[in-house]
Amino acid sequence: MSQPVVQIRDLRFARGNRMIFDGIDLDIMPGSVTAIMGPSGTGKTTLLKLIGGQLRPLSGSIRVRGEEVQTLSRPALYRMRKRIGMLFQSGALLTDLNVFENVAFPIREHTRLPQALVRDLVLMKLEAVGLRGAAGLMPSELSGGMARRVALARAIALDPMMVLYDEPFTGQDPISMGVLVKLIRELNLALGMTSVVVSHDVREATAIADYAYLLSDGKIMNHGTPDALWGAESQWTRQFLNGLPDGPVAFHYPAAPFRDDLLGGAPR
């Protein structure tokens, strides 16, 4: 069996006193689309930042292609990041550059290619996401879905080995959502990449994923192929995947008994 692209072992991470990850093991296999799902606030984005080396874990190990991310020197970390594309939830397009220049940005920063070649590369990337015609627009003129596709074109500008998607479907209309689902799957195949999709849009994420991890309260609640997860026995998994309002995750935030609160009389 081939080596995982990302291998996480016993990862612990805390923000202040709150434990975000409490001993997580996770493998991302080459060429696959892996979905990481979980309720809001479980630190899915944090996980991507840990993989990209923007945050340091309390303990545990994160290996990208066998290299321990937290021990990398800054130049080595930057070398690694050049091979990883990241799609931010907001798109994170540079607002003072137009679409073309945004996609050209990583190419210009990291290579010394002639202008004509940069132009061809950028147009190819934009063509792949269907926005070659929008090359001259400014980010403020794009719809949310278009901005995310431009960001995707920029993420694949340097032909990365892996792309990390942070909530790619959030806040998208059904058509944009369909476009993104198709793009993520097709680009993964066409460019021979590895993709990690962090999302709480269960249907879209499970539709394109080869493997999925369910994350909650700092633990991995379940993992497996999407089919296996849909058929899982676990109450929590069922509640999350089907979006049931009550279950192991209670509807009520923990509180004193309702009766005591009402009759207790002491004003807060």
Binding site: Q54, R81, F88, S90, L94, H110
Partner: peptide, 22 residues
């Protein structure tokens, strides 16, 4: 500040571009 709030600085870091330098 706005570049930071809209993740542009963070995005640069992930593109292996040092925002302090750029």
């Amino acid at each position: 500040g706005l570049m930071k709030a809209t993740e542009q600085l963070s995005g640069m870091e992930m593109m292996a571009v040092d925002p302090v330098q750029r």
